[in-house]
């Protein structure tokens, strides 16, 4: 019986070495060789400065950029979080109604019922990098106006949304989405 105590301690040591140290380091090694960019966070650099990660959404609220989804943490994942508000929450209802009104007004929409629901509800992570292409299209008018774009350039924004729309992965998984950070970076390059 006493024997099992000493076995437990030694075994824990051995198995920690294998699964807690060698295993993660082995995965790190393979990752660095095969997918160095992805393993280190799919970071986007401009002029040698990291301006974000392709996977981590950023906060956009001025008129000249496409807006991301509402976030419970203001896009600062320290730590990440959703709102965890209930489907019967009065607070959520008030926030929802305000978002709906604001989005419709600022984007010159006559029918607020057209707004896709992901723009009115906060994401799970607080840093959702995507919105649906439909939500992006609804913002084109506002952006074109804020940037003083003519009709031709406005058409170009629409082209940009279409070219950056990611369709379901391998034709099966997920929905059509647009990465907001990539879209806004492309938008800035248009000028």
């Amino acid at each position: 019986m006493k024997n099992q105590i000493s076995i437990s301690i030694k075994y824990l040591l051995a198995i920690t070495l294998i699964t807690g140290l060698i295993y993660p380091l082995f995965i790190s090694l393979i990752s660095v060789i095969l997918f160095p960019h992805k393993a280190s966070g799919s970071l986007i650099e401009e002029d040698g400065i990291v301006i974000g990660s392709k996977l981590i959404g950023q906060k956009f609220e001025t008129d000249k950029y496409f807006w991301s989804r509402p976030s419970a943490i203001d896009y600062n994942p320290a730590p990440s979080s959703g709102t965890n508000l209930a489907p019967t929450s009065e607070r959520l209802k008030q926030i929802f109604l305000k978002r709906k009104k604001d989005f419709a007004e600022k984007n010159f929409l006559k029918n607020p019922e057209l707004i896709p629901n992901e723009m009115l509800f906060a994401s799970a992570s607080g840093v959702d990098p995507h919105i649906s292409p439909a939500s992006a299209m609804l913002q084109v008018e506002r952006i074109a106006k804020a940037r003083n774009f003519d009709r031709a350039k406005k058409e170009k924004i629409i082209g940009l949304i279409n070219s950056l729309t990611e369709s379901p992965q391998f034709g099966v998984w997920g929905n059509s989405v647009v990465n907001i950070l990539l879209l806004n970076l492309a938008l800035d390059k248009m000028n």
Binding site: G82, N117, S123, D128, P129, G174, N175
Partner: peptide, 11 residues
């Protein structure tokens, strides 16, 4: 289909 607490890429 409320998207509260859900991610766009998953739906």
């Amino acid at each position: 289909g409320l998207m509260e607490g859900k991610e766009t890429r998953f739906g």
